[in-house]
Write a protein that binds this DNA or RNA. Sequence first.
DNA 1: CGCGGTTCCGTCAATATTGACAAAACAGCG
DNA 2: CGCTGTTTTGTCAATATTGACGGAACCGCG
Lengths: 203, 203
Amino acid sequence: MDRNPQTVRSERTRVALRRAALARFQSQGVEATSAEQIASDAGVTLRTFYRHFPSKHDLLFADYDSGLQWFRGALAARPDDESIVESVRAAIFAFPYDVQPLTQMAAFRAAELDPDRIVAHLRQVETDLADAVSEHLRRRLDSPDRVLDVVVTSRCIAAAVFGAMEVWMLRDKRSLADLAELSHSTLTALEEGFGDDGMFRHY
Amino acid sequence: MDRNPQTVRSERTRVALRRAALARFQSQGVEATSAEQIASDAGVTLRTFYRHFPSKHDLLFADYDSGLQWFRGALAARPDDESIVESVRAAIFAFPYDVQPLTQMAAFRAAELDPDRIVAHLRQVETDLADAVSEHLRRRLDSPDRVLDVVVTSRCIAAAVFGAMEVWMLRDKRSLADLAELSHSTLTALEEGFGDDGMFRHY
DNA sequence: CGCGGTTCCGTCAATATTGACAAAACAGCG
DNA sequence: CGCTGTTTTGTCAATATTGACGGAACCGCG
């Protein structure tokens, strides 16, 4: 019960910090920008900076978090009688890949961040996605049992979506549209996994 | 081609650092031990410490890495005509949960580490497990195609195993045997996911 | 407006981490 | 053994992060 304007004041400094950081990152690069500068630009102390963001690099991933929020909403909007995989697929396709704040920092990340750090954050997002699916499922089903099924199902779906991202990142072209297409394919692979020629029977 | 004694010398300091760290952690706790002390005890400089371990906390996760290595071997030892899920299940059950180095630091982690840090590392291990399964599959199948299937399959299996761990961590008792049992259950849930009453049909 | 409780921020002082550069130890070879 | 290229350390100096404590700003209320 406290993830709101959290007393407007706080929100203002958060925004100021983000804005200051983006400006610096844009003009002089991520690594060349010190947390000190960001805080200073935003008119606060270094300590305050760390009260709002766990680390300097986390500023680069704010878009993922907001994307996740969008996803939760999209999922909630799907009809309850639709298969969960289908709901996720629909949400993936409806995703506003080209919206500004979401792709704004992608270039910086790709260019300057240690790939391992990016991958680590993607894993975090995958987990959050799984949680979102999990919550959605729990809300739809009322039964408190079937815990294992819900856990496995939601994680598998997240695994399919991010498996697509794994493959996507290894390719040349890399348009966001391709990513959605790939997700579609991996979700289908998941659905058909146990069909006569499905992967779980075949392997 | 260089993950060997890497010039014995280096390996010796690595061992010395690990030994020194464990001793300190044991006697005065993790957070109360400074990287400086560890390095000093091992007879090297602070900088050298960081050349061997990415961070102080990484010392606590060495066992997971060795466990993964064990897992790869166990997987490779399974017959090629066995279903991949069955191979993983067998490996999970054969796992030497009670071996010393593996559980040695578990208590410290649970007691002093920020849960988020532990979870983050578990995600890392999950990814590594998926990679191990993935490689095993690629070695068994010869076909270079079916890339998506392999990615999704391996990730789903890892998801099932770590989904079990997620559930396990939320419970009271927590014996390692229970964990293996839970993994068995989640893998079964995965196998039956598309059965008549399976989760992917039911949801 | 003044009061008491909360939340947010500044100050200080330890660590924790990392990049750059040079000395030391080591390996293979003539 | 002495020479030479490679690997591992030490040294120095910036950051990056975090815990502890006190002051400032803000909130609802009388």
